[in-house]
Simulated assay, not measured.
Amino acid sequence: MSCDFLALANSGVQSLQPYQAGKPTSELERELGIRNIVKLASNENPLGISNRVKQLLCDELDELSRYPDSNGFYLKTALAQKLTAKAEQITLGNGSNDVLELIARAFVSEQHEVIFSEHAFVVYPLVTKAIGATAVQVPAKDYGHDLDAMAAAITERTRLIFIANPNNPTGTFLTSSELKHFLDKVPEHVLVVLDEAYYEYVDKAERAPSIAWLNHYPNLIVSRTFSKAYGLAGLRVGYAVSNADIADVLNRVRQPFNCNSLALAAAELVLDDADYLTASVEINRVGMIQLTERFDELGLDYIPSKANFVTVDVGRNGAEVYQALLQEGVIVRPIGGYGLPNHLRVSVGLENENQRFLEALCKVLALK
């Protein structure tokens, strides 16, 4: 074959590398023949799906020969009521990643710049480069967003700014006052995406009233997901809340049926399952203490996190430690690609899963 198909691709796509998701347990089983694997790599909810969702999915199977509701009427209605918003402000996506890409494709061109922080979610530079826009990565401050520097980076070419709060993969957090001070500096024609994928894990008293801010900042877009605290990662459903004019633009480029029937029904149900959400948050709170207290005992530095993961400095090449942990049947996430070559991101699991990881880490690092 003589044709260079990579050369035929858009220039922005040519420089991309495929997104590297956390290694699935089935892959490690095939590669090493290991059983009873603990996966703490993808910030998934260790509780699994709720019992109410399990029953619902069984009840919905007979309808899978039909297309889903392309507009997601019932889920949008439930979200609007829960968030004190209007249904026409909501855009549904195949996970919040889908929504982030929709925003970039709808509003950004090759003539524009997109601003995001160092150590921020890898999807931000990925979607920016894919559409041929200029990526402006602002150096991090204490592993998180330097909002003053990000505001100073705005030019006449800036069209979009991504902010993750809490940030992935560092777990750092911006206060309401910090965010509001930043938003006051941003010109109205520059869109700001506040990515709140881990919003539910933040203490209620500390959460930014971001949805209420939409009335004052028409250029603000808030994105959230059902993949984390709500336990629906495998069904892929997320959403954005914005002013209605922005949502109208997003729905012009959104693929029809981008949320499947099971995802729509499960998200609507779990949104109202307060007991499940409370249990998810509590498991995370307890597990975070279990991990970080042991890190303290071992003398390992870590980045304080408001999410359902913690990033720890293992004091040596993180990729090598990751590979050694695989041999012990434990999957975590090396984040050298985020500019943190000596760190591992560890999702908070159940008590026994956290303990299994800690024991394996001590063995690999020869710690006691």
Rank of each mutant, 00 (worst) to 15 (best):
Leu367Val: 04
Ile154Ser: 10
Asp245His: 10
Gly12Ser: 05
Tyr201Phe: 15
Arg294Pro: 00
Ile331Thr: 01
Leu367Ser: 08
Asn308Ile: 11
Asp273Thr: 03
Glu188Arg: 13
Leu56Glu: 10
Val122Leu: 15
Val202Glu: 00
Ala240Met: 03
Leu16Lys: 04
Ala135Pro: 14
Leu358Thr: 03
Asn251Gly: 02
Tyr302Thr: 04
Pro187His: 05
Leu92Ile: 02
Gly33Glu: 11
Gly336Cys: 08
Val249Met: 13
Phe121Met: 13
Gly337Trp: 04
Ala106Ser: 08
Pro68Ala: 12
Ile331Ala: 04
Val193Pro: 05
Phe357Gln: 01
Pro166Ser: 08
Glu60Met: 13
Pro256Lys: 07
Ile161Thr: 03
Asn51Trp: 04
Pro166Met: 10
Met150Pro: 01
Asp146His: 03
His112Pro: 08
Ala266Gln: 02
Glu110Arg: 12
Val190Met: 10
Ser109Met: 10
Glu268Leu: 02
Val222Lys: 03
Gly299Trp: 07
Thr134Met: 12
Leu64Arg: 10
Glu282Trp: 00
Thr292Gly: 07
Asp62Val: 15
Gly234Tyr: 07
Pro18Ala: 00
Thr77Trp: 12
Asn258Leu: 02
Glu156Leu: 10
Pro68Ile: 00
Ala366Gly: 14
Leu300Lys: 08
Ala263Gly: 04
Glu156Lys: 13
Lys228Ile: 05
Arg236Cys: 14
Ala319Val: 08
Glu118Tyr: 03
Ala279Leu: 09
Thr292Leu: 09
Asn165Thr: 06
Asn317Thr: 09
Ala151Leu: 11
Lys228Pro: 06
Ser26Ile: 14
Lys180Gly: 13
Pro46Asp: 08
